[in-house]
């Protein structure tokens, strides 16, 4: 007689289980979002970036950047307003064909270069996914149940903190754009992301006016202080391209963050019922 089969699943300590659940939901959501981000980047953003590199490398020249140093670009009129997130211009290809050389890059796939982009895109969004799931777990600890649908809100908040708020000061950069010292910009970027994230958290979960006023201060402070900018804007890239790039980068970011939030929260809440 053989004894009836018993299936024994070895269960680790609850703490390890929970760590595993946090990691798997975050990494799967992040990898999926990163893959979609890479795809959208290659279709919508990369062609603009490659186009700009033609100006950066000198294959093409923008009429204003070539020699006219007394052109209005160097003046610092309205320092903050000029860097607000730009909208993609309606005229897509018109107006770029002065002093041109070579074709305008289209959608393509350069295996080594774009392969690395796919890899790093997954890495970035896996990182964001981990932070997002950690924040969701923190909210649940405080008694706020997070459903899959609310993941959309979490994703939008993440987008505001990580892409939109920094873009108000430092709009997504096209290669060749004139910019201030990289370390100063990185410090401002990190500080803005942290301040905006904490501010949004306080708006969502803070109780009372004290928390909300602090939230407004945190959200506004980076922009009142102002992002580091160069004294002169003398980059070789046409403003039309830069505006198109900023609009597309922000649009793609919004789509990807909405998905990241949905994926992360639905995987997280699925793990809860399992």
């Amino acid at each position: 007689m053989t004894p009836p089969m018993t299936c024994v699943t070895r269960s680790d300590s609850p703490a390890t289980d929970m760590l595993q659940r946090l990691l798997t939901s975050a990494l799967i959501a992040g990898a999926a979002a990163g893959l979609i981000a890479a795809l959208l980047q290659l279709v919508f953003v990369q062609p603009v970036l490659l186009h700009a590199e033609l100006y950066e490398g000198g294959e093409r020249t923008h009429f204003a950047a070539a020699s006219e140093h007394d052109h209005g670009h160097g003046e610092e009129a309205a320092p903050d307003e000029g860097e607000a997130p730009a909208e993609a211009p309606a005229a897509e290809a018109a107006g770029h064909d002065h002093a041109d050389a070579g074709e305008i890059p289209g959608i393509g796939f350069d295996a080594p270069r774009d392969g690395l982009s796919v890899l790093f895109s997954i890495m970035v969004y896996a990182g964001y996914g981990l932070i997002l799931v950690a924040a969701i777990a923190l909210a649940e600890n405080a008694g706020h149940r997070v459903t899959a649908r609310q993941g959309l809100l979490w994703g939008l908040a993440g987008y505001i903190a990580v892409q939109l708020a920094p873009a108000v000061g430092l709009s997504p950069e096209l290669p060749g754009m004139a910019a201030a010292d990289i370390n100063a910009r990185a410090v401002w970027w990190v500080a803005t992301v942290i301040a905006s994230a904490v501010g949004l958290w306080l708006i969502a979960f803070g109780k009372g006016w004290g928390a909300w006023i602090l939230a407004i201060v945190l959200l506004a402070a980076p922009h009142v202080i102002g992002a580091p900018h160069p004294h002169e804007f003398t980059g070789p890239t046409p403003p039309e391209l830069a505006a198109q790039f900023a609009g597309r980068a922000l649009g793609v970011g919004l789509a990807v963050w909405a998905l990241l939030g949905l994926f992360a929260a639905s995987l997280w809440s699925r793990g809860r019922t399992a």
Binding site: A15, M18, L19, L22, L23, A26, F120, M123, V124, A126, G127, Y128, G129, L130, I131, L132, V133, A134, A135, A137, L138, E140, N141, G143, H144, R145, R272, T273
Partner: peptide, 25 residues
């Protein structure tokens, strides 16, 4: 109510790994 309590240590570990990935990339 279905909410789950996760240890703060685990939350911090996960957030730090995420921040490290974002920093490197």
């Amino acid at each position: 109510d279905g909410t789950v309590s996760v240890s703060l240590a685990n939350i911090v570990i996960v957030a730090l790994v995420g921040a490290a990935l974002v920093f490197v990339a």
